[in-house]
């Protein structure tokens, strides 16, 4: 500290020794020129940021318009439009039946299954890592988990297909292991690292003083974690869940590989299902451009878009409400 101060004093002495008046003038000019440069820089960066934000919004709107434009012909088709609410998706039978319910149900059941598995596990793991594990254990586990987040989904799908599906088949005595549950578990594996890693960051960044305050009032460590630390980290935890689940909802490859791809409304988690994303991915390549089937796939796309949008919007509302209390 004191040596630092000495240094400062020393250098300012030196400056003073060289014609102080001149130096001062130069400094003034310099600073005003610099300020102008900064002003321009600030205006410029503001402009650039505005344009990029604007482009982002425009792109999303354009994508939606494109989807919608390609979906509209089906709504206008007097034969196909009424079938959208049917219970079956028979796109190549005659007449076509484009019932969306099995696909929506498939997406929902797989996604909710994944949420039910990954959220408690992810938050639990985050609490363990940030509050229970010794620093050494954390130093090993945290990067490992972050690496897991980068595994390509097709690899996880492969794992689900080769390892998980046979297990589930044997365990429940099913005729096939390719079920909604298999999809949920694989998606959960995919969301888990994201949820764990971001929640861990959120929990670790809760100031220590909250823990101290809680303990000083006679809380046990666990009570403090549950009543103060986790609530204080809740907006970060919500964000982690949204990111993890966001990845899972839009995921195509994994579910295509492990859910059995039967477009039927599932009765339980142990039946094959077909999600919206898998349907689009599987059928878009073979469909005749401009056919009813083609337009029907765009209807699926619009529904998927709206659902994702709704989920994000709700999540945003929830996390904003939570922020208010902080």
């Amino acid at each position: 500290m004191s040596s630092n101060q000495d240094n400062v004093a020393f250098s300012s002495n030196q400056e003073n020794a060289e014609e102080p008046g001149d130096k001062q003038k130069k400094l003034l000019k310099n600073s005003s020129r610099r300020r102008k440069a900064w002003d321009i820089f600030e205006k410029l960066s503001e402009g650039v940021l505005f344009v990029s934000a604007f482009l982002g919004v425009i792109t999303v709107i354009l994508i939606f318009l494109f989807l919608f434009k390609e979906a509209v012909p089906l709504f206008l088709d007097p034969l196909s439009a009424p079938t959208l609410t049917a219970k079956n998706w028979y796109p190549i039978s005659n007449p076509h039946i484009f019932g969306l319910w099995p696909l929506i149900a498939g997406s929902l059941i797989v996604t909710f299954g994944a949420i039910l598995i990954s959220v408690p596990l992810g938050i639990g793991a985050a609490i363990y890592l940030s509050m229970v594990a010794s620093p050494k254990v954390r130093e090993i586990l945290k990067p490992t988990i972050e690496v897991l987040a980068g595994i390509p989904s097709v690899v996880l799908g492969f794992f689900g297909l080769v390892v998980l599906a046979p297990w589930i088949k044997d365990f429940f005595g099913l005729s096939t292991g390719l079920t909604a549950l298999t999809g949920s578990i694989t998606l959960a594996l995919m969301a888990l690292p994201t949820i764990t890693s971001i929640s861990e960051d959120a929990i670790s960044s809760v100031p220590r003083k909250y823990m101290e305050a809680s303990l000083s009032m006679g809380a046990t460590r666990w009570q403090a974690i549950v009543t103060v630390i986790v609530p204080a980290a809740l907006s970060g935890i919500t964000a982690s869940v949204m990111l993890g689940i966001g990845r899972a909802i839009g995921e195509t490859m994994t579910v295509l590989m492990v859910t059995g791809n039967a477009a039927i409304i599932p009765g339980t988690m142990l039946e094959p299902v077909r999600t919206m994303t898998a349907t689009i991915a599987a059928e878009m390549g073979e469909v005749a451009r401009g056919s009813e089937h083609y337009h029907a796939l765009f209807v699926v796309g619009v529904v998927l878009f709206l659902m994702t949008f709704a989920v994000n919007y709700i999540a945003d509302l929830v996390s904003r409400r939570m922020k208010e209390v902080e």
Binding site: K209, Y210, E212, A213, V325
Partner: peptide
């Protein structure tokens, strides 16, 4: 405590 530490509640 020396520094105020109310909970974010």
């Amino acid at each position: 405590f020396q520094a105020p530490n109310p909970f974010p509640k």
